[in-house]
Structure formats: structure tokens, C-alpha cells
Simulated assay, not measured.
Amino acid sequence: MNNTTQEPPKIEFPCPDYPIKSMGEATASYREAVLNIMEKHAPGFDINRVSVRDSRKGTFQSVTVFITATGVEQLQSIFDDLKKLPETKMVL
């Protein structure tokens, strides 16, 4: 048996084109709430690259935003704020 532990890849900051996907209930305000959080933590992200997809039945929605990640603290703050949204089910 091999007991070596593989570490996750290291991210070099700043990291352009870093994708963040938030999935949640498809409500009228979910996309806007996600974008407000992204603007708070990663101002100036390219709104034209935002991707919004509804689930087959329209119950859920995924919002993918590409940002320039500046550090672990920034990413943690984004993930924490997205998870606080009542509609959010998962953040990747």
C-alpha cells in the first residue's frame, strides 16, 4: 500500500479566469444576489462572461462567473457569502 498523501494543486495568485459556480433554487433574485456578491469581492469581473443555466425542470439555476482571484482570503469570503444565500445549494 502507498500511504503518500497527494496535495491539491497550488493556485498562483493573481489567477485570471478563475471560475466560480453557484447553484441554487431558481428564484427571481438568485442571479442578481450572486452577481452582487461577486461585485463586492471581485469588482470589475466581465459581466459578458457570466453563464446562467436553468435545470431541466427549471427548479434550480447555476450561475458561473469568471474572476481574477487575488488570494485565498478573497475566495473564502466569496464562498462564505454565496453559501449564506438561502437559495444556494452548492458552490464550486
Rank of each mutant, 00 (worst) to 15 (best):
E32N: 09
E32Q: 14
A33F: 08
A33L: 14
V34T: 04
L35T: 13
L35E: 12
L35N: 03
N36M: 08
N36F: 04
N36W: 09
N36I: 07
I37T: 00
M38I: 07
E39R: 14
E39H: 13
E39Q: 13
E39P: 04
K40A: 14
H41N: 09
H41P: 02
H41G: 04
P43L: 03
P43H: 01
G44E: 07
D46M: 05
D46Y: 05
I47S: 14
I47H: 15
N48H: 11
R49E: 15
R49H: 13
V50T: 05
V50L: 03
V50H: 01
V50C: 02
V50I: 11
S51G: 07
V52W: 02
D54P: 04
D54S: 15
D54G: 12
D54I: 08
S55R: 05
S55D: 09
S55C: 06
R56Y: 11
R56E: 12
R56W: 07
R56T: 12
K57H: 11
K57E: 12
K57W: 09
K57L: 11
G58N: 08
G58C: 11
G58F: 06
G58L: 05
T59A: 14
T59R: 14
T59G: 14
F60I: 09
F60S: 05
Q61P: 04
Q61R: 15
Q61S: 15
Q61V: 14
S62G: 08
S62F: 02
S62V: 00
S62W: 00
V63D: 01
V63H: 00
T64H: 02
T64M: 09
V65I: 06
V65H: 04
V65K: 00
F66D: 04
F66P: 01
I67Q: 00
I67V: 12
I67E: 00
I67H: 03
T68A: 09
T68K: 12
T70P: 10
T70E: 15
T70N: 09
T70Q: 15
G71H: 08
G71W: 12
G71S: 13
Q74M: 01
Q74E: 11
Q76W: 08
Q76L: 13
S77T: 10
S77M: 11
I78P: 02
I78G: 03
F79L: 06
F79E: 13
F79Q: 12
D80K: 15
D81Y: 11
D81P: 07
D81E: 14
L82E: 00
L82W: 02
L82Q: 00
K83S: 13
K83M: 15
K83G: 11
K83N: 12
K83R: 15
L85S: 06
L85E: 07
P86G: 06
E87H: 02
E87L: 08
E87N: 13
E87K: 10
T88L: 09
M90Q: 10
M90F: 11
M90W: 09
M90Y: 11
